[in-house]
Design a protein around this nucleic acid. Structure first.
Lengths: 166, 166
DNA sequence: AAATATACGGAACGCTCGCCCCGCTTGTCG
DNA sequence: CGACAAGCGGGGCGAGCGTTCCGTATATTT
């Protein structure tokens, strides 16, 4: 691959990352191209569809979340981290909520598996009610993100965590 | 106003009510017109913009919620009712979440006032933690709706209500 | 029944946006 | 340096949607 091509690809990716985080997945590709200082055709040469570009960005973020879950944080801390990350990145919030674009299945599965491990541990130590399932958690994260987005803070995560106690 | 005009207006309103409830605010006006058995021009004669039509529908639903809040239900029951109503009516859920179209200010204010009264009472009787504010509630409803929509049930409302206890 | 205002349907317009195409530029390699 | 492939920009196409327009139809009034 030619050097300028690789450079442009990275520029597009970085720009898309920033733009999608701020303005969400709805921004036109032309706008991403403009801010990256390239033509729309260049974007489409590197990412065959808009969805492919979104997926590249979201996959990266979900991967970072999974890594965080494996880094030794506790359950509550990770829950708060996910909500904060979604608040800081609108594209992630929209993808998790299932609005149109989907999170790549394998990345989502890895995240959920990591989250489920944290949950199991928290249930063993008595911090979380034993009836809660991993599925419940995903829904709760979506709800907390919606709440946090509307308010601009994550204060209400505490309420949910309090409700999860045995 | 001519008799057929009044009839058509009602048909459009009823159809919009059903279509927006099922498919959300995103459905094209042409689709509403088609299902109502009228032309698009007829819709626009009775409702100058799409937003006006949406507002008419949403205002009605918010009004029904406010009436429910004044009907003597308790706090938890009303909270669950709001979430269920939003789950049953996608347009309401989207309007409350602030996605694009706005709830008419006066209708929203009336609902919030009614909800705040219920909250105060619940706090006096010791069912809800005294630090919770009416604003917190609105956010929580949005979050619970997002959760409920993703899962298709409202089981997780209990978790939030549990977290609200003193 | 004739006259008139009112309402109707749906084609058409303008705009946005995802995506494609093609003439030109630029990096790479002998 | 020269030839050639690889890459680039941005105008253009088609689809979807909100909104408008106007020739036709119908309710109302006398």
């Amino acid at each position: 691959m030619r050097a300028d091509a690789r450079r442009n690809r990275q520029r597009v990716l970085d720009t898309a990352y920033a733009v999608f985080a701020t303005d969400g997945i709805g921004v036109p590709i032309d706008e991403v191209a403009r801010r990256a200082g390239v033509g729309a055709g260049t974007v489409y040469r590197h990412f065959p569809t808009k969805e492919a570009l979104v997926e590249a960005v979201v996959r990266d973020r979900i991967g970072a979340m999974t890594a965080k879950a494996r880094s030794g944080v506790d359950f509550g801390g990770f829950f708060a981290f996910m909500v904060e990350a979604s608040l800081a990145n609108r594209a992630v919030a929209e993808a998790l909520a299932g609005g149109g674009y989907r999170v790549p299945a394998d990345a989502e599965a890895a995240l959920q598996a990591a989250f489920a491990d944290l949950l199991r541990h928290a249930q063993r130590t008595g911090d979380v009610h034993p009836d809660i399932t991993p599925d419940d958690l995903n829904s709760l994260v979506v709800g907390c993100v919606a709440t946090a987005r509307q308010r601009g803070d994550t204060a209400l995560v505490r309420i949910v965590l309090a409700g999860l106690r045995p």
